[in-house]
Design a protein around this nucleic acid. Structure first.
Length: 484
RNA sequence: GGCGGCGUAGCCAAGCGGCUAAGGCACUGGUCUGCAAAACCAUGAUUCAGCGGUUCAAAUCCGCUCGCCGCCUCCA
């Protein structure tokens, strides 16, 4: 109870279906697992949401003073990757490496902090075989025709996470039951006997039971426990993977150790396109590349993804991205004005506006990472502070205070542009020249200077207190200035 | 059929028993302005899918109905 009060942070735990105060096992250290992607496709918006949500969790934990030991896996050994490599006429490794690199690029472009470890399934097969041995030994698994299956009937707590009642689910809904050779169709595969084609391609691992290849669930269990220990603090993923994947991951790990695999299970909702889950079958996949090709930045996308609470579905559309862009521009205009504001006289209340924003933002974040509510506090602050900026009613210390506060928030959101780049002297001279011309009502010369500025990537904005400028290029759009 | 989730202004989205139902986008009006562009300011829900119920009090709790979404096993 004492620590609960100390951290103040609570998460909705899928295990209990309640918000719970977060408490790590070790004093100031959190172990954190993120279900990673399969390396056979380009990063799409669902992947992006998962990355951004996990980044939010991770950055917020760091804000809370925790050292985060995080692990995101890559599935590079499964039906999809093997099939993909075969079709591309490449080796499995060559094929998956290309996609893994793509994911890493996406992660970086979305400003997602790098995890501590990025294990690949293909490099942990020994551990998986070891797990299979042990499960067999403990009676949780059985061998049949060279494949090893997990015997669900032996694991009494099966279904706790998803709340599923095994007696009532509809078997064979998504899978052809005739293809099973398991004792019970509910059992799942740990190690799969290699096919002829796989043997030919060298995709097999020698074991006491013959040549095999691991199944998906055991891959995750092996990697998560290897890097984070028997019980990790937090396991995140998306909702549609609860059953059967996480349920199976739990079954494997807990049958092995008798301890819970994870203390907190955080599941993000799906990202929908046209109201439906993105999938190859539906043909409604939107990739990060598509978004960039349409002229949006990964930052726009990050903001869109962050704006909706992680446990709510996001119905993606490009129209929505446009809205988000406009919103972001308002924020940029604000920070830009702030950064370029010369010191004026102090404002009596601005400090209280800042502390109100901070308090509201962080208490919203403490409450299961409620970014939408937190953003509300930020916009309220911008609204109150905007008039103060246009009157230049802010002294140097206050400006610094605001920037520090936004900086603190930005450590988590990574949305604001707070690094102003200094105005080049030549640009400044042009602005001055235009002002002189304007004063002399020489509109031709003034417009000429304005055009030249545009050519240099600077847009001039006339305001009541004099001209301000804005950098049009994406890289330095955070920079802007006022004439003085 | 089972399990889970969602339905709040034109769009997006907070609020989850009691302060005027946050905030963003769009619309409209205004300020500023040589022009342009931008910015800034102002304005919107007697009402929260529908119907009942519990309560002094419900968008918030309970029940039913309608609509939408996800999962239901050798795909990840």
């Amino acid at each position: 109870m004492v620590t609960e009060k100390k951290s103040g942070l609570c998460f909705f735990n899928t295990l209990s279906k309640k918000k719970e105060a977060f408490q790590s096992q070790e004093e100031k250290r959190v172990s954190f697992y993120i279900c990673g992607p399969t390396a056979y496709e380009k990063p799409n918006l669902s992947h992006c949401r998962r990355f951004v949500v996990s980044d939010l969790v991770s950055r917020y934990l760091e804000h809370k003073g925790y050292e985060v030991n995080s692990c995101l896996n890559f599935t590079d050994l499964d039906d999809n990757t093997i099939e993909g490599a075969r079709r591309a006429g490449k080796s499995l490794e060559e094929f998956t490496t290309e996609y893994i690199n793509g994911f890493m690029e996406a992660i970086d472009s979305l400003n997602v902090k790098r995890a501590t470890n990025y294990p690949k399934a293909s490099e942990h097969v020994d551990e998986m075989i070891e797990i299979a041995h042990e499960l067999l030994h403990k009676g949780f698994a059985y061998e049949k025709h060279g494949s090893i299956y997990f015997d669900i009937s032996k694991f009494k707590r099966y279904g706790r996470l998803s709340g599923i009642d095994l007696g009532k689910i509809r078997l064979g809904r998504t899978v052809d039951l005739d293809n099973y050779e398991k004792d019970n169709p509910r059992d799942f595969t740990l190690l799969k006997r290699s096919t002829l084609a796989e043997l030919k391609e060298g995709i097999f691992y020698e074991t006491d039971w013959g040549n095999v290849r691991p199944g998906w669930h055991i891959e995750c269990s092996a990697m998560s426990t290897k890097y984070l220990g028997e019980t990790m603090d937090i396991h995140t993923s998306s909702r549609n993977l609860i059953f059967p994947h996480h349920e199976n991951e739990i079954a494997i790990a807990e049958a092995l150790t008798g301890k819970p695999l994870a203390r907190y299970w955080l599941h993000s909702e799906l990202l929908l396109v046209d109201g439906k889950k993105m999938s190859h079958e539906t043909g409604n996949l939107v990739t990060l590349e598509d978004v960039v090709q349409r002229g949006f930045t990964p930052r726009d996308l990050r903001f869109l993804l962050l704006l909706v609470h992680y446990r709510k579905p996001i119905n993606f559309s490009f129209r929505r991205l446009v809205n988000v862009q406009t919103t972001l521009r308002r924020v940029d205009d604000f920070t830009c004005k702030l950064l370029c504001l010369p010191p004026g006289k102090p404002h009596p209340e601005v400090a209280s506006y800042v502390s109100a924003m901070e308090e509201q933002f962080f208490s919203a974040m403490d409450d299961d990472l409620n970014v939408s509510r937190g953003m509300g506090a930020i916009f309220k602050f911008i609204k109150r502070t905007n008039p103060i900026l246009s009157m230049n009613h802010l002294d140097g210390d206050q400006k610094k205070y605001i920037l520090e506060s936004l900086g603190k928030i930005n450590e988590i959101l990574q949305i604001f542009r707070l690094a102003g780049c200094p105005l080049a002297p030549s640009v400044n001279a042009l602005i001055q020249r235009r002002e002189v011309a304007r004063q002399g009502k020489d509109w031709e010369a003034a417009d000429e200077a304005r055009d030249e500025l545009i050519r240099q990537g600077i847009q001039i904005i006339d305001t009541a207190t004099g001209p301000a400028w804005k950098c049009l290029e994406k890289d330095c759009a955070g920079s802007a200035g006022n004439k003085k």
